[in-house]
Protein backbone atom coordinates (compact mmCIF):
# COMPACT_ATOMS: atom_id res chain seq x y z
CA UNK A 1 0.00 0.00 0.00
CA UNK A 2 2.71 2.44 1.03
CA UNK A 3 4.67 1.31 -2.02
CA UNK A 4 1.79 2.21 -4.36
CA UNK A 5 1.18 5.59 -2.68
CA UNK A 6 4.90 6.33 -2.97
CA UNK A 7 4.89 5.59 -6.69
CA UNK A 8 1.82 7.82 -7.18
CA UNK A 9 3.63 10.72 -5.46
CA UNK A 10 6.80 10.16 -7.50
CA UNK A 11 4.89 10.12 -10.78
CA UNK A 12 3.02 13.29 -9.78
CA UNK A 13 6.36 14.93 -8.92
CA UNK A 14 7.85 13.97 -12.27
CA UNK A 15 4.79 15.43 -14.00
CA UNK A 16 5.20 18.79 -12.24
CA UNK A 17 8.97 18.81 -12.84
CA UNK A 18 8.33 18.22 -16.53
CA UNK A 19 5.96 21.20 -16.73
CA UNK A 20 8.41 23.35 -14.79
CA UNK A 21 11.11 22.64 -17.37
CA UNK A 22 8.68 23.18 -20.23
CA UNK A 23 7.81 26.55 -18.70
CA UNK A 24 11.48 27.44 -18.49
CA UNK A 25 11.72 27.03 -22.26
CA UNK A 26 8.38 28.49 -23.33
CA UNK A 27 7.82 31.53 -21.12
CA UNK A 28 9.21 34.88 -22.30
CA UNK A 29 11.28 36.83 -19.72
CA UNK A 30 13.37 36.16 -16.61
CA UNK A 31 10.55 36.79 -14.12
CA UNK A 32 8.15 34.37 -15.80
CA UNK A 33 10.87 31.80 -16.17
CA UNK A 34 11.73 32.07 -12.48
CA UNK A 35 8.09 31.34 -11.72
CA UNK A 36 8.23 28.06 -13.62
CA UNK A 37 11.77 27.13 -12.67
CA UNK A 38 11.47 27.63 -8.93
CA UNK A 39 7.91 26.70 -8.06
CA UNK A 40 6.77 23.84 -10.21
CA UNK A 41 10.18 22.31 -9.70
CA UNK A 42 10.14 22.81 -5.91
CA UNK A 43 6.72 21.26 -5.59
CA UNK A 44 7.62 18.44 -7.96
CA UNK A 45 10.85 17.62 -6.18
CA UNK A 46 9.16 17.75 -2.76
CA UNK A 47 6.55 15.37 -4.09
CA UNK A 48 9.23 12.95 -5.33
CA UNK A 49 10.99 13.12 -1.95
CA UNK A 50 7.70 12.48 -0.14
CA UNK A 51 7.17 9.46 -2.36
CA UNK A 52 10.62 8.19 -1.42
CA UNK A 53 9.77 8.68 2.26
CA UNK A 54 6.52 6.71 1.86
CA UNK A 55 8.33 3.85 0.15
CA UNK A 56 11.25 3.70 2.59
CA UNK A 57 9.46 4.50 5.87
CA UNK A 58 11.15 5.74 9.03
CA UNK A 59 14.77 4.81 8.39
CA UNK A 60 17.98 6.59 7.35
CA UNK A 61 16.81 7.24 3.77
CA UNK A 62 13.29 8.30 4.76
CA UNK A 63 14.47 10.86 7.31
CA UNK A 64 16.93 12.38 4.86
CA UNK A 65 14.15 12.70 2.28
CA UNK A 66 12.03 14.60 4.84
CA UNK A 67 14.95 16.91 5.67
CA UNK A 68 15.47 17.61 1.96
CA UNK A 69 11.82 18.70 1.70
CA UNK A 70 12.23 21.01 4.71
CA UNK A 71 15.36 22.73 3.39
CA UNK A 72 14.11 22.93 -0.18
CA UNK A 73 10.95 24.70 0.99
CA UNK A 74 13.02 27.09 3.14
CA UNK A 75 15.68 28.01 0.58
CA UNK A 76 14.07 27.87 -2.87
CA UNK A 77 11.69 30.85 -2.48
CA UNK A 78 14.48 32.96 -0.98
CA UNK A 79 16.68 32.24 -4.01
CA UNK A 80 13.84 33.13 -6.40
CA UNK A 81 13.16 36.35 -4.51
CA UNK A 82 16.83 37.35 -4.56
CA UNK A 83 17.20 36.63 -8.29
CA UNK A 84 14.04 38.55 -9.21
CA UNK A 85 14.97 41.56 -7.09
CA UNK A 86 18.53 41.64 -8.41
CA UNK A 87 17.29 41.41 -12.00
CA UNK A 88 14.85 44.28 -11.49
CA UNK A 89 17.35 46.51 -9.74
CA UNK A 90 20.00 45.96 -12.41
CA UNK A 91 17.48 47.08 -14.99
CA UNK A 92 16.15 43.96 -16.70
CA UNK A 93 12.91 45.04 -18.38
CA UNK A 94 9.69 43.09 -18.16
CA UNK A 95 8.45 41.29 -21.27
CA UNK A 96 6.74 43.66 -23.75
CA UNK A 97 3.37 41.95 -23.21
CA UNK A 98 3.40 42.79 -19.48
CA UNK A 99 0.43 44.82 -18.34
CA UNK A 100 1.65 46.65 -15.26
CA UNK A 101 4.82 47.41 -13.27
CA UNK A 102 4.11 49.05 -9.93
CA UNK A 103 7.65 48.42 -8.72
CA UNK A 104 9.13 50.58 -11.49
CA UNK A 105 6.59 53.35 -10.71
CA UNK A 106 7.57 53.38 -7.05
CA UNK A 107 11.28 53.38 -7.79
CA UNK A 108 10.74 56.44 -9.99
CA UNK A 109 9.04 58.28 -7.12
CA UNK A 110 11.88 57.75 -4.68
CA UNK A 111 14.59 59.16 -6.95
Amino acid sequence: MAETAGIVFIVMGLFFDLFGCLGLVRLPDIYNRLQAATKCVTFGTCSIMFGVFLMKGFNATGFKALLIILFLVLTSPVAAHALARAAHISGVKLWRGSVIDRYEEDKGKKE
Binding site: F16, F19, L27, P28, Q35, K39, G97, D101, R102
Partner: peptide
Protein backbone atom coordinates in the same frame (compact mmCIF):
# COMPACT_ATOMS: atom_id res chain seq x y z
CA UNK B 1 -2.98 26.19 -2.69
CA UNK B 2 0.33 25.06 -4.20
CA UNK B 3 -1.30 22.02 -5.71
CA UNK B 4 -4.16 24.01 -7.27
CA UNK B 5 -1.88 26.72 -8.60
CA UNK B 6 0.63 24.20 -9.99
CA UNK B 7 -2.09 22.69 -12.14
CA UNK B 8 -3.07 26.18 -13.35
CA UNK B 9 0.51 27.01 -14.33
CA UNK B 10 0.95 23.60 -15.98
CA UNK B 11 -2.13 24.42 -18.06
CA UNK B 12 -0.76 27.86 -19.02
CA UNK B 13 2.56 26.36 -20.07
CA UNK B 14 1.08 23.47 -22.02
CA UNK B 15 -1.42 25.73 -23.84
CA UNK B 16 -0.27 26.26 -27.44
CA UNK B 17 -0.54 30.07 -27.22
CA UNK B 18 0.86 30.53 -23.65
CA UNK B 19 -1.95 32.92 -22.58
CA UNK B 20 -0.12 34.90 -19.87
CA UNK B 21 -0.59 38.51 -18.73
CA UNK B 22 2.46 39.13 -16.52
CA UNK B 23 3.06 42.22 -14.42
CA UNK B 24 4.23 43.45 -11.03
CA UNK B 25 1.45 44.47 -8.64
CA UNK B 26 1.56 46.03 -5.21
Amino acid sequence: ECFKANIEVAFLVAHPKVPIRPGIVK
